[in-house]
Design a protein around this nucleic acid. Structure first.
Lengths: 151, 151
DNA sequence: ATATATGCAAAACTTTTGCATACAA
DNA sequence: TTGTATGCAAAAGTTTTGCATATAT
């Protein structure tokens, strides 16, 4: 690979800085804590998960506001898996584009990269535009089933 | 096609009956209203959409309970698009398997069938099982972008 | 007749907001 | 210093639940 792990981490941090600056947001303790929690655990975290991760120093209302700000700055993306609450992860350009494996038994959500599939999806996007006029700029693919532990 | 539209509708109604019976659920006025609303509008509806569709005869709490029962009987499936509320549609075996086109401008959600893609996804499921041990029994694919009207 | 479904009211849970104070630039 | 971010408290929106009554089988 062209970049070492450390280089890539620095590059990512720099890109996060850039996006925050672009949105006129400051690099505060709370925001740092949330971003770091999501770097440590790349699988999508709920607000409750994040609350546990960052500890009681960040109250719930601030956590929600921090998340809203980071969403607006496109540092995070929001996901929902029909659980009744939202999950969040680092924007795909800050991580790599991936999909999710949702275990219907234990509720665990794991990340999955599937490069081959992306090629097919690009073709699908073209076909959709031709058939329906819809211009897809993004997609989301989740698989549901039993994880290795539960199977 | 082998079945006429009416035949297919009857077959679907019969299958819904079967699933309700299997779950020990009665075929009541409220449940009928909800299922019919979703047959008229196959794109995923929110609880508010359904409330409008079925009218004030079904109060909100009953609507939620009806939905919960129909979910358990596998007559409906639940979807979330990070809007802060859930959407519901007829189970894919009662309709046909399809994906969604979500307009990020106007919020409209349209259905899309993409048969070619399904073949690729079946292959992907095998590859996932081999690589990760995850046994995917189902998947969900949504495209985000601008609909023909908003583009 | 009897178990299930509904209606009303109250509550639980997730998320948002107002306002005074604390902090980053 | 100055505008932004945070903390606390209160509220808004979505979904769930208890209990008495009505209904489907």
């Amino acid at each position: 690979m062209a970049l070492s792990k450390t280089d890539r981490h620095n590059a990512t941090a720099q890109e996060i800085d850039r996006r925050l600056a672009l949105a006129g947001l400051r690099w505060t303790k709370g925001r740092r804590a949330v971003v770091e929690a999501l770097q440590v655990t790349p699988a999508p975290l709920s607000v409750t998960d994040l609350q546990t991760a960052v500890g009681p120093a960040v109250p719930l209302s601030s956590l929600y506001r921090i998340i809203a700000d980071l969403l607006e700055a496109k540092v995070l993306i929001k996901l929902e898996f029909a659980e009744g609450f939202a999950r969040f992860e680092l924007d795909e350009d800050l991580a790599s584009h991936h999909h999710h494996l949702v275990c219907t038994q234990c509720g665990d959500v794991a990340d999955l990269e599937l490069a081959d599939l992306e090629v097919t999806l690009v073709t699908a996007v073209k076909s959709i535009k031709r058939r329906t006029g819809f211009r897809a700029s993004n997609h989301r693919l989740d698989f549901f089933g039993l994880c290795a532990k539960c199977a």
